[in-house]
Design a protein around this nucleic acid. Sequence first.
DNA 1: TGCATTGTTGCACGTTATGCAAGTTTGCGC
DNA 2: GCGCAAACTTGCATAACGTGCAACAATGCA
Lengths: 218, 218
Amino acid sequence: MQETYGTGGLRERKRAQTADAIHLAAAGLVLERGLEATTIDAISERADVSNRTFFNYFPSKEDAVLGIDEQAVAAELDRVRDSTGDPVRATFDLIYAVFEASGGRHKNAALTREVLQKHPSLMTRQMVRVAELEDRLSAIVAGWLGDDPRFAGDTESQRLDEARVILGICLATVRVSMKKWASQTDGDPGGAASAPTDPRTTYERAITTLRTVLEKLR
Amino acid sequence: MQETYGTGGLRERKRAQTADAIHLAAAGLVLERGLEATTIDAISERADVSNRTFFNYFPSKEDAVLGIDEQAVAAELDRVRDSTGDPVRATFDLIYAVFEASGGRHKNAALTREVLQKHPSLMTRQMVRVAELEDRLSAIVAGWLGDDPRFAGDTESQRLDEARVILGICLATVRVSMKKWASQTDGDPGGAASAPTDPRTTYERAITTLRTVLEKLR
DNA sequence: TGCATTGTTGCACGTTATGCAAGTTTGCGC
DNA sequence: GCGCAAACTTGCATAACGTGCAACAATGCA
């Protein structure tokens, strides 16, 4: 089921292909019929796999709709781990990486946005995922704090707490801007690269918003 | 089903009694058998109601375990709405109110803590609930910001964004301290009022933590 | 080509969750 | 007290989610 080692062979390609087919079927059906009205059976049928196979690829309907890929997320985490510089900035990058690997990517960014726009509960789902990763993520952030002069004097336990808070703060900020991003309306549906603000830009704006608020609060 | 008007009559008392019975049965069973192993059927049986009646009181197993009372939450929100003073402090109070009304109260605070301790996923559930209330909550916070000189100059839309961020920040902080609270071990099981830090104190500490982090970040 | 690994599928089963209709309990005006 | 209306409980039917299992098919590799 998992652990398709990096052979790059037919097997692996087929697997990615099937995952994509299921994802597309799920997102498409949800856009057509709504989230509730879309059953896993219907998704499986459109993706031309059995009901049972669906669960070999995604643990739930929501994950299929978002196209979540746990392996990609894990790989992303390893990649970003040894960031340096400002912890807040690095934390934003970390969250961005998780989201990227969680389906925001693909050729289907527009599709994903449309789905999130029509079904905000899926955004909550995204957030829950990050919450589930909290222990791993905050450990990474805590590591960064150890290299920061402002936090280096704290005990390890304190740094972990502070890391959790910082993670939560950044996450909250991201969530707000994601919501704005999702609620954007497409400019012209025809234009190929009409590009209604890409996610990355949204993140940059989120950081600015947070800095503004922090400035005002203190 | 709902809207038992405030007669204070037998009907209302019985209803509260049944809700409590289901809640206690749920929490008890979860502690004995675990969250997965506890079925709604088992809860219903112990609470001496039909499976169907269970759903007249709680929409899900999790809500029953936590003893969530939507009406109480709504009432709490109305009560806290016209707070004044520092927005951050008020926001903490707001979140606290939601939690209080969501089951943290009762004679069963110790029970609730034990359950949350053994099943952290329920904490996530609590957070999702607040997220679901986000629109209402952030509207309240945005109202407060209008009275604050630091934010009064902003447009309404900006204030709403900032309110969401502030809410998220406070919520993240609360979550961290709730986790610490839940993971406390009981001092002496025998002592009646051994009182291992009440939730309110935890909140106060959370505020301090947040202020510290904000101080360091800026 | 042949064997081990991995993937697919159907089937059975248990659980969550909701609608509906019949029956019961409570509240309240008379 | 009586009786009606509203609220509540319950069983039944139904749909969907989710998982274990075992048989079968496809793939990778020697």
